[in-house]
């Protein structure tokens, strides 16, 4: 399946673009997606934290991802 991933802040700068399309196995989990992205972009693994959001909610490690989900990478937030 093909996932479209929105990128923000330092994650956007590391990847060098505001979103990313990746081809991955059907039913891939949030944890699995992060592992794939760490391999492709090792600088992502050096962040203090990196979460996956699915449809505007933080995803648990084992959350399965679907093509129609709105997926985003969430580096450490620093609002306020």
């Amino acid at each position: 399946m093909r996932l479209n991933i929105a990128l923000f802040g330092v994650a956007r700068e590391i990847v060098g673009q505001p979103s990313l399309e990746i081809e991955t196995t059907a039913g891939q989990s949030a944890r699995g997606l992060l592992a794939e992205l760490h391999t492709r972009y090792p600088a992502l693994a050096a962040l203090s934290s990196l979460a996956v959001a699915v449809n505007n909610e933080y995803a648990a490690d084992d959350t399965p991802l679907h093509e129609r989900d709105e997926i985003a990478l969430i580096p450490p937030v620093s609002g306020g």
Partner: peptide, 14 residues
């Protein structure tokens, strides 16, 4: 509210 906002709200400061 302000403490939790700083932990969870998807805003980034450069």
């Amino acid at each position: 509210i302000i403490d939790t906002l700083k932990q969870v709200v998807t805003i980034w400061k450069k």
